[in-house]
Amino acid sequence: MNGFLALIGRDLRLARRQGADVAMTLAFFVVVVALFPLGLGPTPALLARIAGGVLWVTALLAAMLSFDRLFQQDADDGGLDLLALSGLPLVLVALAKAVAHWLTTGLPTVLLAPLLALTLDLPAAAYPALVIGLLLGTPTVSLLGTVGAALVVGARRAGVLVALIVLPLTIPVLIFGVAAVEAGGAGLPIQPHLTLLAALLAAAIPLAPLAAGAALRQAVE
């Protein structure tokens, strides 16, 4: 358990010292969201209608930016081999990495999303669904991305590859996340969608680290 927390702490310290990585992810999020009104025209009714989808898709894309480096840096400097020998099961290494990834990119995205939603005229009633939905959905994305990141360690063009294999797997999260925002905006109950997002997270917490751990073992062998 100590090793697990230490690994999270190490990744958080690394992220803080190389703050540019996190800042770039957030900047990407903001820039891409800003492109939609420019591309589609500034009609408030249209923007309000698509705001949920735009924020969710952009949050997914922003998350993809950082996955190729999740294990690659450690693999390059030998840290991954040390982690594999440290006695901490690789399943927990993967889980710790996913937690650190979510804290450094998922959580800031969740905090930034309501501000961007303001610029897109998202109906006021949809905000709880947006924020709670992202809170439940982005950890699942981080977990799935950890699997992809573990699979592409040592691969050529890992950045594009990880997006190509992870994005299709995140479709359920996207569907229920956007459905929650739409239900919220229409004044319908949002609990069913949020419950499904929570169920996906509950399934991903044990399964994704298991798969990522298996992939990491292949990578260090």
Partner: peptide
């Protein structure tokens, strides 16, 4: 497509 890309992405 992801599977094909991944299996062929390693030396």
């Amino acid at each position: 497509l992801g599977h094909m890309a991944l299996t062929n992405a390693f030396d």
